[in-house]
Design a protein around this nucleic acid. Structure first.
Ligand SMILES: [Mn+2]
Ligand SMILES: [Mn+2]
Ligand SMILES: [Mn+2]
Ligand SMILES: [Mn+2]
Lengths: 219, 219
DNA sequence: AATTAAATTTAGACAAATCTAAAAATAATA
DNA sequence: TATTATTTTTAGATTTGTCTAAATTTAATT
């Protein structure tokens, strides 16, 4: 069976929202997809008949095994294309999400596999998110929030919590990106800001909000 | 203004059909797009209000300057993606058309320009068709049909007249591709077959049909 | 428990793109 | 020129995805 771009976007949105709770509400979906609750209800009924999810009136929705498989395929394409755009075509990581939002719907299986091979089977996309392999399996990145990193432990930035232009702008200015090595030197309880040190640079402080938007792993 | 995938496919089809005659008929378009004449009429009315073409009832259709510009942009994307698929991802040239049919609708201008630069601004796609530049200009390939090539003139294959799997299969078997150098050794008036010679290979004959499906330029 | 508030679903309508069948215009032929 | 045949357009329906407004269900408060 094949699915429309709209159907695929719904399935992917449910997949992402599902990770928090097990079940997703109509309003959550409407917000995520910038549409109205009534439209969501209509689409859920349709996707249920296609067996991509289980749905009972007023009870929220949950992807079926088949729905999950479809979602993982779309996420795989999305993240592979993002990797391609940044790694091969030299896009900035703030510019790639929208383009990947379109490219993820290109249907050719062969294209995905050839692209994956060309890129060298990358495990993580430019935002640090894991790329599912052709079987839907993805590496579990045991990264922690920078806010929870102990003092004087060397760590590497592995991911960002958002991909807004605003965040990127700030990270560029502070010279932080995926792969940057840093350690926390001091924490301030007044505003929960933290002082960090990057090799060959002076220590500087970053806000609580920024620290919460960064994920790191200890190295 | 932005256009739907369907609208873009109509514009591109008109562009291609227009090259033969100046004006395109409803039935021609219906055949090309695998749809019905009634659907074409509806769409033509719509595209006229969008000023992409001039259209009078029963009189056929012709692209406006704006329509041509849009068409050239789509053709540019189509052929750049085909080049990418063959050159970068190692697709066979028979496998790329369908995929490019989808990729040509990805809207990002920046993507097209970055892709073009990454590929080294190629002038021709894997089928020998010219790729329009960012201003819509394309190289004029003064190639001739192999059937019209004079005897003993060294020539290089620059294009194919069709991109069917059947043709590719035959060309693969005969070891002929874009760039292959050959000369005509003899022509047979009985069946209009011709004998050709490729360097370091024995001469062999090819059918009239095959010769007509090949374009060459004298080198 | 009764009332109010919030979330969700239904009812009815609309735009895009398509189709079949019938009507109208143009082209071909006798 | 009159009659067919072909092409093209209109009329009316259908599917997909969306919307607003109203009704219903569930959750939260008195
Ligand atoms: Mn998308
Ligand atoms: Mn990403
Ligand atoms: Mn297309
Ligand atoms: Mn081509």
């Amino acid at each position: 069976m094949s699915f429309s771009i709209t159907e695929e976007n719904y399935i992917k949105a449910i997949f992402h929202l599902q990770h928090a709770e097990g079940t997703v509400s109509t309003n959550e979906l409407a917000a995520e997809l910038h549409t109205k609750a009534a439209s969501v209800t209509d689409m859920l009924k349709k996707l249920k008949t296609k067996k991509l999810l289980s749905y009972e009136k007023y009870k929220g929705v949950r992807l079926s095994a088949e729905g999950k498989k479809l979602a993982l395929g779309i996420v795989r394409k999305h993240r592979l294309w993002e990797y391609f755009l940044v790694d091969t075509l030299q896009f900035g990581w703030d510019e790639v999400h929208e383009v990947a939002e379109e490219l993820e719907h290109i249907s050719s299986k062969k294209l995905v596999e050839k692209l994956d091979a060309f890129l060298g089977h990358p495990k993580f996309d430019p935002h640090g998110d894991p790329i599912p392999d052709s079987n839907g399996k993805m590496a579990v990145q045991q990264h922690i929030n920078l806010i929870d990193l102990s003092i004087n432990k060397m760590a590497e930035v592995t991911g960002v919590g958002s991909q807004s232009t605003e965040l990127l702008e700030l990270l560029k200015h502070k010279n932080i990106g995926i792969g940057t090595r840093l350690e926390v030197k001091k924490t301030f309880s007044f505003d929960h800001s933290i002082e960090i040190k990057i090799k060959n640079q002076n220590a500087f402080t970053i806000s609580q909000q920024l620290a919460q938007a960064l994920f790191v792993k200890i190295v």
